[in-house]
Design a protein around this nucleic acid. Structure first.
Length: 656
RNA sequence: GUCCCCAUAGCUCAAUUGGAUAGAGCGUUGGCCUCCGGAGCCAAAGGUUGGAGGUUCGAAUCCUCCUGGGGACGCCA
């Protein structure tokens, strides 16, 4: 069964069309009520419709409500009072319906029983989430570290947000295709290989440290990169040499390529260590870096040239994007520049430098062509990417820093105009996020002003979380030496595991619970606080629910077998029940704007609804059948929390 | 200079294609432990949503202007 919001949206929309045939297709605009006095859901579409029709909003809403009275599905589900205010249509869910629906989602299909198509094995506990009616292939381009450097905080947001979106898309029944577009190509590698070369090394006076190419490790590359970068900026002769190396690398020089592969191998190994700790998984085929597109870059430029989009400017090959809106008289492009530079002149998208090297614009265009499957102009039969299977995505998400907004605007526009993607068929989306700041509002750096390494950050997260866990365990054993659920205290190994889950979870949740578009203030104290919308609070709430089952010696598998209605007579029970039923529509809403914080906010509300329920309604101490009903509510709460946190990439612990 | 993003309670943040009385946490004040994990619950105070206009039955949200902050803007990614 579709989610509540979706059912009401469909039914009200149909009622509007029936009452006003000329308004077919008008949206019902159903949402959960802002104020519970008016009901559980509200439809605002009648007011918008009235405006269109030039009629009184209240009258339009009245006719729609009349129409809804004949709708058995709606009347079975909710009470629909006459419209109020300017034309709000309110819905109050019927307790019977809530209880019935809770029972339905409570039941977990046993192994072997047929599952609806779209579900995968192990996915049988859907908690009311229907697999998407139209499953889409969605490329998610995220993380994308620069392989010349160690992973640092700059990679954190993209990695965490991208991973959460992949998990959410997957559970919602889409086909996410991970793409880690690692920076394994371009000027930076020219710099490093040039720096290392005997001919150019003499340009730097500090040649002592890096003695040999063999056995060089990522940290050394980091040092190598720093020195090369400094020399690159200071010494034009070296800069010229470095650019020459890029061209040689891109041209397939075997010796340079050998060095490049060595560097790449070491770097990827390091990245995978970080990903492992973060609980972010990339299979080998998910790494498709810039270099993968190298062979087809000339074809990309050729295609642009063939379409008349290319202009040479100061020796570089540029695309000056113009509005595609045609002048009806001349049928020529309007010629209006879409982008301008600081002098007001048209702003180019440079696809080939004056030294013939390519840039990330070119690579991004090639990646789009590969991902959409629009590779008709790719001529090079030996190219790596030509021989790989395109995911043929209908959507491509770029989880990238907001500062690159202009770049993506230009690349997307260029891709559409050149036919690497088709408007209406391929949706190119920049899922932008803000900068990570310290508590003084400055970009997040070490005390010395350097970039914070991800490994160090995660170490500190776990160390701080361990202090929390130890503190809690001390408090608990002081209160009750036998443990709150009749079990002994946690072993060192258990504590370490919990500290890992809490520490990593705190770092991730702090990021995901915030609107991604704004800059984000990184604060250890806030993210590890046990109060408020934090990972430790959520994990604690979960552990607390789970402790009920241990203490009650209750086997939840037993109560998951039946779909009997779950009565919710108390106000706190009903509120919790409704919150549980809103999980599916929340996932929809979070995915509609690629905003994990919507899911996080929901989980926090759910946790609060649970504690209110738990405060007001005894569970283990109540008599049957209430005891079983309440245990089922506890179990459902735990399952939604567990699943919801999992969709955010956050682990839970049974005890903490 | 042009363009983009942002400005909400003392602080950190929410607010579902424009919806009803703008909500949480922290902090502040006051209640609740014979009660299943008090890392809790209940309540109070705290707002001209940066400012001024405009559109609308209805604006934190859309438009215009202004102020303040951040960012991007030709051969780095």
């Amino acid at each position: 069964m579709p989610n509540i919001r979706h059912i009401l949206e469909t039914r009200v929309s149909a009622a509007m069309a029936a009452a006003y045939p000329e308004a077919a297709g008008a949206p019902a605009i159903v949402q959960a009520s802002a104020d519970s006095r008016f009901g559980d859901y509200q439809a605002n579409g009648a007011m918008a419709l009235a405006k269109r029709l030039g009629q009184k909003p209240h009258d339009v809403a009245g006719r729609v409500v009349e129409q809804l009275k004949g709708d058995a599905q709606v009347s079975d589900m909710a009470d629909v009072p006459p419209p109020v205010g300017p034309g709000f249509i309110n819905f109050r869910l019927r307790p019977k319906w809530i209880e019935h629906r809770l029972g339905e989602i409570n039941r977990v299909k046993p192994e072997g029983e047929g599952r609806p198509s779209g579900e995968r094995p192990g996915d049988e506990d859907r908690l009311g989430v229907e697999p998407a009616a139209e499953s889409e292939t969605v490329v998610v381009d995220y993380s994308a570290p620069n392989l010349a450097k160690e992973m640092h905080v700059g990679h954190l947001r993209s990695t965490i947000i991208g991973d959460a979106l992949v998990r959410m898309l997957d559970f919602a029944g889409h086909r996410p295709v991970k793409q880690n577009h690692v920076g394994d190509w371009g000027t930076q590698f020219g710099m490093i290989t040039a720096y290392f070369d005997s001919e150019t090394r003499g340009l730097d006076q500090r040649t002592d440290v890096i003695a040999s190419w063999q056995g060089v490790h990522v940290k050394d590359f980091e040092e190598l990169y720093r020195r090369a970068k400094r020399l690159f900026d200071e010494n034009p002769k070296f800069a010229a040499a470095a650019r020459e190396y890029v061209v040689r690398l891109q041209g397939g020089d075997s010796e340079i390529k050998r060095r490049w592969e060595h560097l790449k191998y070491n770097s990827l190994w390091h990245c995978n260590q970080v990903y492992k700790r973060l609980g972010v998984y990339f299979a080998n085929e998910d790494f498709r870096g810039e270099s993968a597109y190298n062979d087809v870059l000339p074809d990309i430029v050729k295609t642009l040239a063939d379409k008349g989009m290319l202009t040479e400017s100061e020796g570089a090959q540029c695309v000056f994007l113009q509005s595609e809106i045609r002048n009806p008289k001349s049928e020529m492009p309007s010629g209006k520049p879409l982008f301008a530079n600081k002098d007001g002149d048209p702003l180019p998208l440079i696809v080939q430098k004056s030294d013939e090297g390519y840039l990330y614009s070119t690579t991004d265009l090639a990646a789009i062509a590969f991902r959409t499957g629009c590779l008709p102009e790719i001529r090079n039969p030996k190219s790596q990417i030509r021989n790989e299977t395109s995911p043929k995505a209908s959507r491509i998400l770029y989880v990238v820093d907001a500062r690159q907004a202009l770049h993506f605007q230009m690349v997307f526009e260029c891709a559409y105009q050149a036919g690497f993607a088709k408007r209406g068929e391929h949706d190119l989306v920049h899922v932008a996020f803000g900068t990570m700041m310290d508590e003084n509002g400055r970009p997040f750096k070490t005390r010395e002003g350097g970039t914070v390494k991800l490994m160090d950050l995660l170490d500190e997260a776990e160390r701080r979380a361990r202090d929390l866990v130890d503190q809690k365990q001390t408090d608990l054993s002081r209160r009750d030496p036998n443990g709150p659920d009749g079990q002994a205290g946690l072993s060192d190994e258990e504590r370490r595991d919990i500290a890992r889950k809490v520490g990593i979870g705190a770092v991730k949740y702090a990021d995901l619970s915030q609107n991604r578009t704004s800059d984000y203030v990184f604060s250890w104290d806030k993210m590890l606080s046990l109060q408020g919308n934090t990972a430790p609070y959520m994990q604690y709430a979960y552990a607390r629910v789970r402790s009920i089952f241990r203490k009650g010696e209750h086997d939840e598998a037993e109560t998951r077998r039946d779909a009997a209605p779950i009565p919710v007579p108390e106000a706190a029970e009903a509120a919790l029940g409704k919150a549980i039923l809103q999980f599916p529509e929340t996932l929809d809403r979070a995915l509609a704007d690629y905003r994990p914080n919507i899911l996080a906010a929901y989980l926090y509300d759910l946790a609060q609804a649970f504690t209110a329920f738990y405060d007001a309604c005894p569970v283990l101490k109540s008599d049957e059948p209430t005891r079983t009903h309440r245990l089922k509510l506890c179990d459902l709460t735990a399952r939604v929390m567990h699943r919801g946190l999992d969709l955010l990439g956050i682990e839970t612990a049974e005890r903490m």
